[in-house]
């Protein structure tokens, strides 16, 4: 559907269960998803932008759909910073919005986003990147269970390095926060956090608390009878005609 909308140079919002893509003339200009931190989280968590500055930009420029532009013109952000942060957020949200489990797709023509256009990306590039990211996750560690479950650190083997970024991730992994929540706490894109969690899982440095206590709840006993869907009486005459027709062909 995205490719068709790109071909007809559509403008509007592509709505799915896990997120929304905004198109202008068939190119992706913005994306957001409840699963990924927005620009505001990415910029304010690390202290790059005070929350008041963000709110001011939304108040003053949101109605003209030029919040990104306002942040640069008012000297809060540089062009390069805005582009790097925004592209990161767009591809991050698109990954979740375009996931196969994201449900039905609707398109509302003419709908725009208040953030405004920063650096449009072709719809094909977004779709290709989303696919590449899915394959990358599975190449690192092909078990999706660590994507949504809270994880806890495991002790490193002697001489096993972790790296500063992943040390910060491990320090925040308390067995309650899911990877999506960790991303928000750290002010990092959600896909990057998923990828780091899978890399840590592959290295044996995290586990889900369920792994630690596998026998906490016994599996439910199988039902004693297998339910059979109700069937109305077969149409004997129809079955005879079918048999005759098949025999005539043999």
């Amino acid at each position: 559907m995205l490719v068709r909308l790109a071909a007809e140079r559509a403008t509007g919002a592509l709505l799915r269960d896990h997120g929304t893509l905004y198109l202008v003339d068939g190119r992706v200009v913005h994306a957001e998803s409840p699963a990924s931190p927005g620009m505001d989280v990415l910029l304010t968590t690390a202290g790059r932008l005070p929350r008041e500055n963000w709110d001011e930009a939304v108040d003053r420029a949101g109605a003209h759909r030029a919040v990104g532009r306002f942040l640069v013109d008012s000297g809060r952000l540089r062009d390069g910073e805005l582009e790097i942060c925004h592209l990161g957020a767009v591809f991050d949200a698109a990954f979740f919005a375009l996931s196969p489990t994201s449900g039905p797709t609707r398109f509302r023509y003419g709908v725009g986003h208040w953030f405004g256009t920063v650096r449009p990306v072709s719809a094909e590039a977004v779709e290709r990147e989303t696919l590449r990211r899915r394959e990358l996750l599975d190449a690192v560690w092909p078990y999706a269970s660590v994507d949504s479950a809270p994880v806890v650190p495991r002790p490193a083997a002697p001489g096993q390095g972790v790296g500063a970024r992943r040390r910060a991730l491990l320090a925040a992994a308390d067995g309650v926060r899911t990877p999506a929540e960790l991303a928000r706490v750290l002010g990092r894109p959600a896909f990057h956090t998923l990828l780091d969690v899978r890399r840590l899982a592959a290295a044996g440095l995290v586990e889900t608390p369920l792994d630690a206590a596998p026998d906490a709840t016994p599996p439910p006993p199988p039902p004693e009878w297998s339910p059979v869907p109700p069937v109305s009486d077969p149409d004997i005459a129809l079955l005879r005609r079918l048999r005759d027709a098949l025999e005539a062909h043999l």
Binding site: T45, A46, R48, G187
Partner: peptide, 10 residues
Amino acid sequence: FVRTSFDSSV
């Protein structure tokens, strides 16, 4: 490596 004042890896 590019140094940014928000969390990035570019």
